[in-house]
Design a protein around this nucleic acid. Structure first.
Lengths: 138, 138
DNA sequence: GTATTAATGCACTTCCATTGCATGGTATTT
DNA sequence: AAATACCATGCAATGGAAGTGCATTAATAC
């Protein structure tokens, strides 16, 4: 029983071949992926299965959703210490306008945002757009 | 020739009845609206016309687009001094989880965001979610 | 091994965004 | 003012993503 299966077991998720494949796919990628990305990687699998698998992962806090402003929902594995289920967690994502990839900058925390009186802040979504390290030739 | 017509003229936009109506509609609203919102306000008009009108306004920097994470694009009038065409402008929007309205907080600037070395920041999209002043009973 | 429960696959639906083309209106030229 | 060019509008249709219902198949529990 490998690590992924242990993780699934600890979250009460049934271990299936498809889920293991999808998990491994996400783990290999350093970037956030769309449903279509996953779909293209697994021709045999049905889109609904992928969709529901991701939704399951989301519920169990294995992946988190990213809205990078492209209009298409992306997903990325939660890292150790990723508190994306906690409302006060402050996500920071970087979207490259050149290669169109979105990266989780988990070690970059978002500063406290002030809101006007009467407003209650529950969650903050911050997406920085620009050119990533690969594309800038750094 | 009133102010709106002057504005249109200064941006090389032809003055039409529909455009004036849409502009006035946006001006009355204090919140960001979806295409459907506009559609509902003008039963007679075709969806495409509204869509293209908004796109024209966007090109001419009369409105700016907001992605508040609901998956539906919203639009709001650019205010005086709204530099939404300038890449370094930092938008701040508030989305109420209760009434589902999105508000432009143009007077609340976003602090400088640090990105890792090699990354070039061109634009920042920040959406704070929570409860707005109306819904919090402030 | 049988029963229970959950995962998968297929078909279908809905919603928003977007485009092509014909038509009608606005501005420009002579 | 008539003719022309240019742009706005409306209709129809498309595409893409998200989501749901149901029957089938696979995984766990007894």
């Amino acid at each position: 029983m490998d690590n992924i299966e242990k993780l699934f077991a600890s979250k009460n998720i049934r271990v299936t071949a498809m889920r293991l494949l999808i998990y491994k796919f996400l783990a290999e990628k350093q970037i956030a992926v769309t449903l279509s990305d996953i779909e293209n990687a697994f021709d045999k699998a049905d889109r609904t299965t992928l969709y529901r698998t991701i939704k399951t992962f989301e519920e169990k806090v294995i992946v988190h959703q990213i809205d990078d402003g492209t209009g298409i929902t992306k997903y990325a594995l939660c890292e150790k210490g990723c508190n994306c289920d906690i409302e006060t967690d402050l996500h920071l994502h970087f979207h490259c306008n050149n290669c169109n990839e979105t990266i989780c900058l988990t070690d970059h925390k978002i500063p406290q945002i002030k809101v006007p009186e009467g407003f209650v802040s529950e969650n903050v979504n911050l997406v920085v757009k620009g050119i990533c390290d690969k594309c800038s030739g750094y």
